[in-house]
Design a protein around this nucleic acid. Structure first.
Lengths: 230, 230
DNA sequence: CAGTTATTATACCGACTAGTAGATTTATCA
DNA sequence: TGATAAATCTACTAGTCGGTATAATAACTG
């Protein structure tokens, strides 16, 4: 139950330093620190993904790096801090994707398509992070847990708004908008369960096809002599 | 690492006993044993669901029952046995649902609709079991893990077969059948994530609407002046 | 009630692991 | 090179938890 004192290397405030050479040194040190943090996180992601958070000891993480446990404690205050860092990276990835596609223009159909596509890609590109996040939610501090809920609500709200816009414009026909948004979220969230790298489809192909399916679920039905062919 | 000796109460083979009264006793004892096993499982499901498998101690499970740890060991050989029992119940539930709907007749559309509906209901009715299963997969013995994979493959194969039949009959129009089957599996598997008991929808309503969405995703598009209204 | 058996509790063991203190090595720089 | 500071390791502690040996108690039988 030790206080979770953030235990980063002393190096801070590189810019404030008077000597230019010393400034370079400081920033170099920061870079090295960051690199080491990244390597620790990356090893932890790999192991947590395969063995679960509780099922992985910090000694294992250290061993995977060819280091020992105190090395990790130099950069993270506790095992839980490490998990929080992993999860917050997962959030950051999702947020990046969201922001990228927010700046897009186009019809509701186009937008929905790219939302689904981008999010599936983001989830697949960070599969381990995403899986760890959802699996280890109970291990997280309440504060961190609230963050992910917020993100999910955000996603749902945006999708709902988009669907309603599509209905207003006559592009979509949906009986229950909220359920439809959950269906779409399902396709995104479940992707890591079935997608296998090196399989029949690339991530991009998988994301595209899923997006097309999402679209066909909500689009107004039009007369068609033949079904769509990808 | 003790051998996982199955440690059930001695009571066995009630039917073979010569005395009728004694036979009743034996069966009564079996019933009591079963009841206690059920209560242990139920308490464990509740705690594993909320705190995770590794995050829950057997002392907590026992306490929730107003009992002590050796009580649990009377009925289960190890903590892992208890988890395996929970997971195999989840499988059994899903299998029941699958069998029930296998005996149904009707068009591919009807069948798909009831498959999705039944499975979502099954998953929602055993939410905790289902969530524990998917979350704690890594904790399971390889044998048990293989079982769930098999079940998922079964589900996918059946859905694929059904979709292909629907295409052959001209009811469905699908660009990529396997991706469509994954999309449908997503809707089933993700349901516990968003569904809240006591919310706007009952389980049955939620399942119905999701099934309708699944259908509209794969059905041949027909001319329509107005979108569907539930 | 006495004897027997099933059931549950007390109290412990051994293994494991998060986290730490202090020794030791490695890098920095006058 | 020698002094100093940073980074890393060795070796440990304290606490937790799965699992068990054994004692106590309740239930049943005659």
């Amino acid at each position: 139950m030790a206080d979770s004192v953030q235990r980063k290397p002393r190096a801070r405030r590189a810019a404030e330093d008077s000597s230019p050479r010393s400034g370079e040194r400081e920033s170099m040190r920061d870079l090295v620190s960051q690199l080491k943090r990244d390597r620790i996180v990356s090893a932890a992601v790999d192991l947590f993904y395969r063995q679960g958070y509780a099922g992985t000891t910090l000694d294992e993480v250290a061993k995977a790096l060819g280091m020992t446990k105190p090395f990790i404690y130099q950069y993270f205050g506790s095992k839980n801090d490490l998990l929080a860092e992993i999860c917050s990276r997962a959030i950051r990835h999702a947020n990046d994707a969201l922001n990228r596609l927010l700046s897009q223009q186009g019809s509701p159909s186009d937008k929905l398509s790219s939302i689904v596509c981008e999010f599936i890609l983001s989830v697949l590109n960070n599969q381990a992070n995403a899986v760890i996040y959802s699996r280890e939610e109970t291990e997280l501090a309440p504060k961190d847990r609230e963050m992910i809920r917020q993100l999910r609500r955000d996603f749902d709200r945006r999708v709902v708004a988009l669907l309603e816009e599509g209905i207003a414009r006559g592009e979509f026909a949906i009986a229950d908008v909220r359920v439809a948004s959950f269906a779409i979220a399902s396709m995104v969230g479940w992707a890591p369960v079935w997608f296998r790298a090196g399989g029949r489809l690339t991530k991009e192909e998988a994301a595209d096809r899923m997006a097309a399916l999402a679209l066909s679920m909500v689009e107004v039905k039009r007369a068609a002599t033949e079904g769509p062919r990808a």
